[in-house]
């Protein structure tokens, strides 16, 4: 099985080949090696990779894996191939996304409005801090995805912008 794993904003291609208990792992250009993971005590794990052993704390929720190791914390994401493709296609600054989870306090634009880079699109509230979401580029508003009072998660699309500064006919 081959998948992309996201770690600290970078994507790595990782392959894992069985059978169970005799996994061989391939990471990027590294020579494939035997890997295993064993439970030690309540919830600590020992990862063995080639000659190395490392104690770790690990938890998983869906496609996310949380690891505490060598005094640090990491949040890794196993990317779904379909989602990955969609993300790569849609990252041209056509959307204003939520920098954090929160609630819409006020929307400042409506579909059809012409905006320039930096035009306030809406005011959001998160953890008692108001933040003004601004247009990432020049364009016109094609959709406002959330309305006043509505809650959203981190990275949710708040406003979509269309190409060009002209109002569509």
């Amino acid at each position: 099985m081959r998948r992309c794993i996201e770690l600290l904003g970078h994507r790595y291609e990782v392959s894992l080949n069985g059978p169970t208990g005799k996994w061989i792992i391939g990471i990027k250009d590294r020579h494939p090696e035997a890997a295993s993971i064993t439970i030690q005590g309540n919830s600590s794990f020992i990862l063995a990779l080639g000659e190395d052993n490392l104690p770790m704390e690990i938890a998983r929720a869906g496609e996310e894996v949380f690891i505490q190791a060598f005094g640090r914390n990491f949040r890794l994401k196993i990317l779904d191939p379909v989602e990955q493709a969609a993300q790569e296609a849609g990252s041209k600054g056509d959307t204003a996304r939520a920098p954090m989870p929160g609630v819409v306090v006020e929307t400042a634009v409506r579909p059809g409005d012409i905006v320039t880079r930096g035009t306030p699109l809406m005011t959001i509230e998160s953890m008692k801090i108001l933040t003004v979401i601004k247009a990432p580029r020049d364009g016109h508003v094609t959709k406002v995805h959330v309305e006043k009072g509505q809650a959203f998660e981190k990275n949710a699309i708040l406003v979509t912008l269309g190409e060009g500064r002209e109002r569509p006919l």
């Binding site: 794993i5 295993s36 190395d52 690891i67």
Partner: peptide, 8 residues
């Protein structure tokens, strides 16, 4: 190590 653990 992190990537291997996540995959496993």
């Amino acid at each position: 190590m992190l990537l291997a653990a996540a995959a496993l």
